[in-house]
Design a protein around this nucleic acid. Structure first.
Lengths: 130, 130
DNA sequence: GTTCGCATACTCGGATAGTGGTTGTCCGAGTTGTGTTGG
DNA sequence: CCAACACAACTCGGACAACCACTATCCGAGTATGCGAAC
């Protein structure tokens, strides 16, 4: 069990967006070369972030991507959920157990992690870095 | 990102061991049919638990598997670590970042989850169930 | 000068392939207890 | 009666195959802007 590379990219992309806020739309190509990944693959990730309403895309000439939500409102969890989805990390698969105690504990543990990720905002660490 | 099925199995297996403690060695076949997985695959999981010193195996006739540590000492994390390994869930892969702030936050979050899993012992939930 | 149309700069999304980890099976080898056989 | 031996009940571990999610690429389609030509 590990976080996907896509999550890795997505978090760094969002940090970059927040750092660049106020400037023009960022278009795919420059963003891809800055991140050092292929434009096509990057576009898949960006599409997921668009669907999660974190950024917006404007097509056509001078188009590109830009933040959609106020930068101070974007938590780590928002980004992670956009990529990884929102299913539980652990689901009991034994036939018998309808209210599996093991699953219960695992869910509690996950909740501890999630609540920390909901507290922390990307904006916080962008400030630290600059 | 999800926990492996093997982790799922391992947790339930350990719970079963703790429930059955004091009885004879559990051998592969009965355990497999109780868990509803193939004996061969089960043996892989058990081998991992043996290597983690959670259970021990005795070969030969009347052999089988039995608990190695006192049942009250076995935490969820012990079992999970035995299967999933102990690497961090998130590792920054951007070239530039040596002390990546994002990675830092992710590690904190993971630590929240891990410490909960270290607190909780399988024995606790076995008692609840019976 | 206004309008039409075309080229251009973008994103969107489906199809496809490589890769690696998870899940699972097969089988031969090693280990121990038990029962059997031959002296 | 007892020692050697064969056998059966176990686990151990390597090799291998199926499968699926992640990673990544290619390409055709859609969309908006701007420029130039024609009337």
């Amino acid at each position: 069990m590990k976080y996907t590379k896509a999550t890795n990219y997505a978090l760094h992309i969002m940090a970059y967006f927040i750092k660049q806020e106020g400037k023009d739309n960022l278009s795919l190509q420059p963003l891809a070369s800055h991140m050092n990944i292929s434009p096509t693959y990057l576009s898949k990730i960006l599409t997921q972030l668009v669907k999660a309403n974190l950024i917006q895309s404007t097509p056509g000439v001078n188009g590109g991507y830009s933040l959609r939500k106020p930068k101070a409102e974007i938590s780590f969890y928002d980004v992670i959920q956009a990529i990884e989805g929102s299913g539980a990390l652990f689901t009991c698969e034994m036939v018998e157990n309808h209210a599996c105690q093991i699953e219960e504990v695992m869910r509690e543990a996950e909740e501890k992690m999630v609540s920390h990720l909901k507290e922390k905002r990307i904006y916080d660490i962008v400030q630290k870095m600059s």
